[in-house]
Simulated scan of single mutants.
Amino acid sequence: MGNAGYSAISNDSRVRILHLLQERPARTVSELSEATELHANTIREHLQRLIDGGYIVAATEHRTTRGRPRVLYTATGHDAASSPVAQRKAREAAIRGDLFRRLWPAATALPEEAVHQLDALVDDLEGAGFSPVVDEQALTVDLSPCPQAAAGARDVRCTVHLGLMDGVLTSACGPLRAQNIRPSERPTDCVVQLAVVP
Rank of each mutant, 00 (worst) to 15 (best):
A106K: 13
R157Y: 02
V134D: 09
D166M: 01
V196K: 04
A153P: 09
L176P: 04
A151P: 06
S30E: 15
D166W: 00
V122W: 04
T159D: 10
H19G: 06
R66I: 15
Y6E: 09
L72G: 00
L164A: 11
A86M: 03
D79H: 13
V29F: 02
G152Y: 01
G2R: 15
G53D: 06
R16Y: 12
S7M: 08
I9E: 08
R102C: 11
S7I: 09
R16N: 12
N180G: 08
I43Q: 15
V57L: 01
H46W: 02
D52Q: 06
E136M: 03
V141S: 04
N41I: 09
G67W: 03
M1C: 02
D123S: 12
S82F: 10
D52C: 01
T159E: 11
H39I: 07
T74L: 02
E61V: 10
G2A: 14
L99W: 11
T170Y: 05
A40F: 01
D119H: 08
L169E: 05
L21C: 14
T42F: 15
S82Y: 08
N180T: 15
E136V: 07
P175G: 03
Q137Y: 12
D166F: 00
Y6W: 03
T188F: 07
P25D: 12
A120L: 13
T159H: 07
Y55K: 06
P111C: 04
T42Q: 14
R24Q: 13
C190D: 01
T140D: 06
V156S: 09
L169P: 00
P105W: 09
A109G: 10
Q193T: 15
T74K: 00
R63K: 11
L176W: 04
E45R: 11
A106S: 15
R27V: 13
E112K: 12
E113G: 02
M165K: 01
G54R: 02
I17L: 08
I43T: 14
L143C: 04
V115P: 00
L194M: 05
Y73G: 00
H62L: 13
E136L: 06
T159M: 08
A59D: 10
T108G: 08
A94E: 05
R101M: 10
N41Y: 10
E31A: 07
L176F: 00
R49C: 04
A90D: 02
A75L: 05
A109D: 13
V71E: 00
V168D: 00
L118E: 08
E136A: 13
I51M: 04
Y55T: 14
Q48F: 14
H39K: 15
I17E: 05
A153T: 10
P183T: 07
V115R: 08
V57K: 05
L125A: 14
D189S: 10
W104N: 12
L125T: 09
A128N: 09
P147L: 06
G67C: 03
D135I: 08
T60Y: 14
I51S: 05
E23D: 15
R186E: 10
S7Y: 03
C190I: 07
Q179L: 09
A40H: 04
